[in-house]
């Protein structure tokens, strides 16, 4: 395990000495702040409207805008989820592809280190960097908690916010695992990033295909899509099935990556 930690440390060091991590952080901060301002503006408009005509006269789906948690944070985290799908492949692309390209893979494979330690070390670093990227958006709930108010005490429902972040972390961790596996198959970071993005986006949006097919295929496809798995958690309902679903995919990707790295010994 000491070896895995040494590798994780090296990976994180490289993320932060190259511009990549900072570019991704900036992109996440910039894009999420645009959505935050937009969503907050919409929330304010509905609130004004409700004050003039009362909630009873507004269409029922406007009830969402009664509190900051459902009206702003849940909406915002939904968009951050999509941003994550776009940025995570850029963070995972270099994990193995870069080692192969600059021939340092040869160093790792001839040091007294087990392949599984290399894979786990890399994944640990991947988890760290995606958590930091998502962590940037924590500033919005804190802004709302500080300056917002509600009729029932606390401005935000922290359990909903926490589950929202748990969902984002699960998705981010899953895309990083997929990205790590794809990165272990190629020398080109571009190819790795592109394919990771295609796979993650397709997997996320499987639910749309499900609408076009009949049962029982529809249920299966719906079950497999990231979007439908996350739906409950994003609304603040803890869903252990989703947790198991994502952890299973992550473990599967780690096993596949290990096979790909270990294959070096056989071919």
């Amino acid at each position: 395990m000491r070896n895995a930690l040494a590798i994780a440390r090296k990976e994180l060091g490289i993320y932060f000495t190259t511009p990549l991590a900072w570019i991704i952080f900036t992109a996440m901060g910039f894009l999420s702040s645009l959505f935050f301002v937009g969503i907050l503006g919409g929330f304010k408009q509905v609130q004004e409207l409700a004050r003039q005509v009362t909630w009873a006269k507004l269409p029922p789906d406007y009830a969402l805008f009664k509190n900051l948690t459902d009206g702003v944070i849940v909406q915002l985290l939904g968009t951050v989820l999509i941003i994550t799908l776009f940025v995570a492949p850029f963070l995972s692309m270099r994990l193995f592809a870069e080692e192969r390209r600059q021939k340092t893979f040869e160093l790792l494979m001839t040091c007294p280190v087990r392949p599984i330690e290399i894979v786990l070390g890399k994944y640990l670093a991947a988890l760290g960097i995606i958590s930091a990227t998502l962590g940037i958006t924590l500033i919005y709930p804190f802004i709302l908690a500080l300056f917002g108010s509600s009729e029932s005490g606390s401005a935000l429902e922290w359990s909903t916010v926490t589950l929202g972040y748990l969902s984002m972390l699960l998705l981010g961790a899953t895309v990083m695992a997929i990205g790590m596996f794809i990165s272990s198959l190629t020398e080109s970071q571009m190819v790795a990033a592109f394919f990771t993005f295609v796979v993650a986006l397709a997997w996320f949006a499987l639910g749309m295909v499900a609408q076009q097919v009949d049962e029982p295929v529809r249920s299966v496809i719906t079950y497999l899509s990231f979007d439908s798995q996350l739906r409950n958690m994003m609304k603040g309902v803890f869903d252990p099935k989703a947790l198991v679903f994502f952890v299973t995919i992550i473990v599967l990707q780690i096993v596949l990556t290990h096979r790909a790295v270990d294959a070096q010994r056989w071919t």
């Binding site: 090296k10 060091g13 190259t18 021939k103 340092t104 040869e106 160093l107 001839t110 040091c111 280190v113």
Partner: peptide, 17 residues
């Protein structure tokens, strides 16, 4: 691997370290 030190044809270096 515990017993060897290896310098490959291309030195395995991380330029950003």
């Amino acid at each position: 691997k515990k017993r060897i030190g290896y310098l490959p044809e291309t030195p395995p270096l991380y330029p950003e370290m």
